[in-house]
Design a binder for these strands. Sequence first.
DNA 1: TCCATGACGAGAT
DNA 2: GATCTCGCCATGG
Length: 121
Amino acid sequence: MAKKVILDNAVHERDFFTDVMAVVRCIPEGRVTSYGAIARYLGASRSSRIVGYCMNKAHGLQPAVPAHRVVNRVGLLTGKHHFATPSRMMELLAKERVRVQNDKVVDFERLFWDPSKELTL
DNA sequence: TCCATGACGAGAT
DNA sequence: GATCTCGCCATGG
């Protein structure tokens, strides 16, 4: 069901960028996922870099995109420098009860949210 | 159209 | 297991 919604949203633009935004906005509060996971869900497992690239443009977009819930495959907050302040990303995660240590998500595997699994096919 | 860029990932060392 | 190297491909100039 959720996927249907995402596809509907994506249909409007049909851009990779829009698809990415749609998935990111589906990430539940207090959970995190990886660029690669999003890419895989969109059937572009080899375009993980593009996902991150798009997040850059997503900055300041409306409705807001919870980019802070997206980290790299090991749970590292690699994109924190692209926020208003380097600590912004960590603060946002902290608000959602997500602990971060050394720019890395604690219990990453437990909090990991895989769209291709959690979002129902 | 071609070239450079990059918030990644997987395999090799 | 920390680093290095290379492949990937959407975007923008």
